[in-house]
């Protein structure tokens, strides 16, 4: 009995050593980025691996980073990102919510056909559509506008539609029935009865939408050309061009800034994210 117990304890210790080591490896790139954003440009690339700051230049790095690039302060890029992300997220979630409600609770002609269209758009990479989208937007003179960056997100919600339909399916229809008998219209049922129940799924969808839009690089890269309208990923990409910019401190500092909202949201909504993945079984 005691043999068994010691064996189990040793196993447990080995497990934790392994798990911590892996955890360190997983998080090391992030730690390295944060620590490097505190190091002075002079010491940054000697003993690059080190997580010890020998010559701190925190204020200097962050101030120079916020000065931005090409005469445009970094706060401008942040504002652009916030505008695009907030409107895009709200739009994506709202259109998906309406569509998911229609697919799961309303009987209408062609619903099966349209739902398979949703699934197909999930299978085709968005990148495939970008060239024709670019040509169409160009013809409509909508290239290089916020519109081009925001509006596609309103409709790119196949994943969210799928996720919300799965959730709606899990809600007993008796709930709808009861509300209907009490005199609710179908729209009222959606907003007063179902939305509160599927709130976790909506939050989950909203966080993923936020992540994707905030970090999206491909679409703005193609649709935007005026620097003052750039989002953060595009700005960071400009920072990496050694011919125009070689202040690594500023680059790393602004990289940290770009990840901060993502990490903060993750900490706040961790529960929804982890549970959400467990429920729908697919990832973003």
């Amino acid at each position: 009995m005691t043999m068994n117990k010691t064996k189990r304890q040793i196993n447990s210790i080995l497990f934790h050593i392994g798990a911590c080591a892996l955890g360190f490896l997983m998080i090391y790139p992030l730690l390295w980025l944060v620590v490097s954003s505190f190091k002075s440009n002079r010491t940054m690339f000697t003993n690059t691996y080190s997580l010890v700051v020998e010559e701190p230049a925190i204020l200097e790095n962050y101030m120079s980073g916020f000065e931005g690039i090409a005469g445009i302060p970094f706060s401008r890029f942040m504002l652009n990102s916030v505008i695009v992300t907030v409107i895009g997220t709200v739009g994506a979630v709202f259109t998906s919510l309406l569509a998911a409600y229609a697919f799961s609770r309303i009987k209408f002609k062609g619903s099966g056909f349209w739902f398979s269209c949703v699934m197909i758009t999930m299978m085709i990479p968005a990148q495939v559509m970008v060239v024709p989208q670019y040509i169409i937007l160009k013809k409509l003179s909508l290239i290089d506008t916020y519109f081009a960056m925001i509006v596609p997100w309103f409709f790119g919600g196949a994943f969210f539609i799928f996720l919300l339909v799965q959730f709606f399916k899990g809600i007993p229809r008796e709930l709808d029935e009861a509300a209907y008998i009490d005199g609710c219209s179908k729209l009222q049922i959606l907003f007063y009865i179902l939305v509160p129940v599927v709130k976790p799924a909506i939050i989950n969808a909203a966080i993923f939408a936020f992540y994707w839009i905030w970090q999206d690089f491909f679409q703005p890269l193609i649709f935007m050309s005026t620097t003052s309208k750039f989002t953060i990923p595009l700005a960071l990409n400009m920072f990496t061009d050694p011919t125009t910019y070689n202040n690594y401190g500023g680059l790393f500092a602004m990289s940290v800034v770009s990840l901060l909202p993502v990490l903060i949201f993750f900490i706040i909504f961790q529960r929804y994210l982890v549970d959400g993945i467990a429920m729908d079984g697919i990832k973003g």
Binding site: P29, L30, W212, Q215, I232, K283
Partner: peptide, 10 residues
Amino acid sequence: VPSIIGGSVA
């Protein structure tokens, strides 16, 4: 954590 930040330019 890497999964949520992995796609970013940073």
